[in-house]
Amino acid sequence: MPGSDSAVMERKPWVAEATKDARLEIKDLNVYFGEGADRFQAVKNVSVKVQQGGSFGIVGESGSGKSTVLRAVCGLVESWDGEIDIDGAPVSHKRDKAFARKIQMVFQDPYASLHPRHTVDRVLSEPLKLHGFDDVDGRVLRALDDVGLGADFRFRYPHQLSGGQRQRVAVARALMLEPEILLLDEPTSALDVSVQAEILNLFADLRKEHNLTYVMVTHDLAVVAHMCDEIAVMQHGEVVEVMDVEAMRSSTPETAYTQELLKASMGYDAEFFGDS
């Protein structure tokens, strides 16, 4: 595809352009862990922009800081500076209750993200009660229906569910407060391939139905290519490249690192990797 090259060129530099329809915008985000001599900068000067209704992917290997960006956005990490704007308004370090109705997150490991002693019913009704929603029963049943589980699952405990079913519950939980932005932190990497397909399809359906904006973090380029329109590649805490999905499909990324990543996710190639 000859045209995609220029598309990439146009996108650069990925410093924010002043557009109105950005749902989430991150400007010069730095995240630090530890104090004093142990202080470690996990994220360096990250700036990305996610369009309303868009699906933005962040790929990178472990330690690249990709998950940390998500955690700073949703408020689980407080030691950051820079700017995070939602619908044009900057968010503070301490988040209030109303913030919870804007952004929710789906975690990586469905075995660790559900409370082992709470039934599905409790997991789903808790956010509703916290925020004083009415019609709790109806909403719980509709949410179960939405994620393809049905009322049968309502009073089960997590240990009575399979990995895929647990992840569906986690997705339902994230949707209970009707957020506009969903942060997905490696949501399928702990699942089998066939289950991953079901969950990815579910994400696609929900995005259409609820008009959601996704930010997805993953190490799997195939998943990101399937799910996202725009992709940022991170390495050592920095964004090394932002490209759109066409550039990725046509294997025309700019940096050597991205090319290596792409090659690696296509499968083993003795000639390419053998003589390193």
Binding site: G75, L76, H115, E126, L130, H131
Partner: peptide, 13 residues
């Protein structure tokens, strides 16, 4: 630091 605790924190509890 478990994810289920993070999840309920995100809900504003």
């Amino acid at each position: 630091n478990a994810d289920y605790i993070s999840a309920v924190r995100l809900q504003g509890a």
